[in-house]
Design a protein around this nucleic acid. Structure first.
Lengths: 175, 175
DNA sequence: ACCTGAACACCGTTCAAGT
DNA sequence: ACCTGAACACCGTTCAAGT
């Protein structure tokens, strides 16, 4: 019973907070509710996190590890699509990772140079590739391509089309 | 003196809330503080906005009008850069407009087909162009290109380089 | 060290009332 | 219609105490 808060309260808090995050988003994630779910007083979290913001930072860090892992399992040609799929599968986590000033943790974290055959060409090309998939993920997530998605049969399918069309344009160039 | 709340309390609230937003971001924008700044009771805002969320939606809508206006003043070749510049000039407004579920108001709002010579080619190309500039704006805003920005002499300069390199790639293709 | 309850200064939102 | 003060159920954070 009283097991839980004997060394892994931090982990229990992160798990509870992660569930709350993915359910309702950052804005309605409270330290007190996470503590409640972990079975401790509203005050206990301060033993492991100096404030709410650093709990959020830890959740974001988890997200970056997960993203890195998932990108690592895919061939270079699918990196862009994998990035979008990650965002669509964990929208709230993705928003937390890349929204609102919490980004320091991520700076330079995600390496997409391999995306779409861009190889190691140039830093500018890598920046463009990352920007493309990141913007696509965001805009799909927020519903800005709702109509086109419906035609394509879902967000991931639409993303594949868009990324495919870019790849095609590049292929035509080199051909 | 008692002028203010005689018809334009709504406007006064939006102005106060806009200042708070641009100062500290959405998360620390409270209805009560906006009311205080507008010189009314913490309760008065409910005469004009059913809840906090719809005040935020109104602020986002203002942002979209402003973005549209600013894009409209630039030649087609500069639309992408203008988009990024808007984001860098009003980071908190931009985050509000495109962050966290508030996007319905914007769906299909921004038309970037003219960007980078993409013309009316295809919806997929337009989606790619918007994604590129949107992702670039976001990633610059959150500090993910900090090092490259320093070399380029600022976020806007870096954005111009990235967008220039993409345009170049397309030009090479058609040449 | 780790956890607790009480307390403080905030919130958003609702309600009964005033003009 | 528009505004008010009081009240409710929440927050994040701090503090003095307990083990």
């Amino acid at each position: 019973m009283t097991t839980y808060h004997h060394g892994d309260l931090r982990a229990a808090l992160l798990r509870a907070a992660g569930e709350l995050l993915e359910k309702d988003g950052v804005e309605s994630l409270s330290l007190r509710e996470a503590a409640r779910r972990a079975g401790v007083s509203h005050n206990a979290p301060y033993r492991h996190f100096p404030d709410r913001e650093s709990l959020l930072a830890a959740l974001a860090a988890e997200g970056f590890e997960l993203l890195e892992r998932e990108l690592g399992e895919r061939p270079a040609a699918e990196l862009g699509l994998a990035y979008v799929e990650f965002a669509l599968a964990r929208p709230q986590r993705f928003r937390l990772m890349f929204g609102g000033q919490r980004a320091q943790a991520a700076a330079g974290y995600v390496n997409l140079r391999g995306f779409a055959g861009l190889g190691d060409e140039a830093p500018l090309a890598a920046a463009a590739a990352w920007s493309l998939v990141h913007g696509l993920a965001n805009l799909i997530l927020e519903g800005h391509f709702a109509a086109a998605q419906r035609e394509s049969g879902g967000g991931a399918a639409f993303a594949a089309k868009v990324l495919g069309s870019v790849r095609l344009a590049r292929a035509q160039r080199t051909a």
